[in-house]
Design a protein around this nucleic acid. Sequence first.
DNA 1: ATGAAAGCGCTAACAT
DNA 2: ATGTTAGCGCTTTCAT
Lengths: 329, 329
Amino acid sequence: MATIYEVAELAGVSPATVSRVFNGTRVSPENAERVRQAAAKLSFTPNRTARTLRRQHSEVIALVIPDIENPYFTEMARGVEDVAQEAGFSVVLCNTDSQPAKEATYFQIALSESMAGMIVAPASSRSDLASVIGRGRPVVTVDRTTDFDVDAVVMSNRPAGRAATDALYQAGYRRIACITGPEDIDTAYERAQGWKDVVTRHEMFADPAEYLRYSTFGVDGGVKVVTDLLALPEPPDAIVAANNLLGVGALQVLTERELTPLRVGVAVIGGLPFTTLPPSAVTVVRLPARNMGVTAARILIERIKGDTQPARTIVLRNQLVPGRHRVAP
Amino acid sequence: MATIYEVAELAGVSPATVSRVFNGTRVSPENAERVRQAAAKLSFTPNRTARTLRRQHSEVIALVIPDIENPYFTEMARGVEDVAQEAGFSVVLCNTDSQPAKEATYFQIALSESMAGMIVAPASSRSDLASVIGRGRPVVTVDRTTDFDVDAVVMSNRPAGRAATDALYQAGYRRIACITGPEDIDTAYERAQGWKDVVTRHEMFADPAEYLRYSTFGVDGGVKVVTDLLALPEPPDAIVAANNLLGVGALQVLTERELTPLRVGVAVIGGLPFTTLPPSAVTVVRLPARNMGVTAARILIERIKGDTQPARTIVLRNQLVPGRHRVAP
DNA sequence: ATGAAAGCGCTAACAT
DNA sequence: ATGTTAGCGCTTTCAT
């Protein structure tokens, strides 16, 4: 790979001038042109490693997510990417598998690669952002919040849980269960609270807890807990799934037993990825995944550029898309 | 961030010794211990940027894929990740959107960040790997091949097309159409050829081309061309979809018109992501996505470590999972 | 086994 | 506007 020294020599200028040309500082038009020619001839590309070492920060943003196979997060990634690209940053995706240890490793790597900043969907409420923040790198959390004083982009989870549950109640269901993710993930908890608000208001159950299941935010989790719920002495007549993958799991079980769309109503918080179901079969609360990515990236880039206002939490809105449920007679 | 100089001072040794401790070269046990203590006290982490600049290669592998939202590629990514992590590399995911320009940009970035190597699912047959190869960086292509002399991990596409089509024929379908991806992507072309082999053998159509549709490898593409096919004077009674997303698109249209599973048979090359369909409704040719990632990563890492044997192409096997189709009377 | 020192390629003072 | 130069933090000869 050619260096600025070789380009400088070929163009008959100093290395500093070459550097200036590639960094937008003032250079006489003639020199700039000669440098560009020389660079082209040598097919010179600035060495980003050297630049990063010198500048103490790179032009890459780390996006740390718990599950790269979850379309919710990849959609978010697209949003981040589009904004970042626009601003001249590249995005690297880091998959933590919801494991705090893997997550911590990626934090270390991001730091020691001097990445410009980080967008994190924390693996758990105890994710340790301290080291990153301590080093002064900008961090924005998405989807979930933490106890750290950083910008966060989230959505209205409890209202989402309420909306989903309400829609099923309006459709005539009267024993609405809820399946959600790990209790220590705030989205899982809050959405379930939203469900609880509604079932409590309608005095649906003597003990709502009986019809609430914590699980993993995955298809397998959904399959397991729905199977559980159906084995209850008085099984639910509808189910609120607190994320897309739980929804898929639930629908798999119900479809197999031919309980949906008719006999058991389903509402999902999150879009159903690659669904082949008729849209009317299921109530969906659309989450602004892409927009969360976009918003987080914008904030992060502002921070990278030096914005120092106090940390904000931005709450995005969801959109209810009711199914046309028909309660079995 | 602490540097080796500070660690060296605290441990009472030279920076070189500190470096040696962190690189596994011989250091006296006592010194090694003192360095480790000092490093821990300062919570020192080696600066990867500096290391990369000096060594001329980093410890990260770029995985360049056309569509990060396609579960086929994310599954592959998991395979790559697992192997890479094991070997001490981190993986960064680069999404090209099937755009050669974006792809070229990521190649440049990978080079100028001195990444250790690259695994690429080429956006098109004309992807320009020349610059990367020219710089001596190891490259492995996955899923698709190119004209460049590099290692490739692919699967048996034409046989997959044949198997899918055969399964539908065995089930009794007699007007089997095929929807596939862009003609210049070899997987799209080869799978269609496999379909052609079978329909030609059975003299199914006067002109098979009429029942073959090239499109994009996306859900929208599937919706569009299946809608097309159904408008034919003599519409097909079954459809082979050449990838997972086309399959989803096809199933969306057919479900909406209540043509599947009974009236129109469907076979998909690639797993159906997050499906809620009963497994018996569709014939599926399972692709070894994860295994391709694993294999590619292993080869790449060997290359990074200095393996110089001639480039190989490894062809992985697929697995037919026939549906229980029932042809409408 | 250890240390001294050069240098990876770049940027940013500073000097002109 | 341009050149000179120090140095970002590390690894790696080359001495000892």
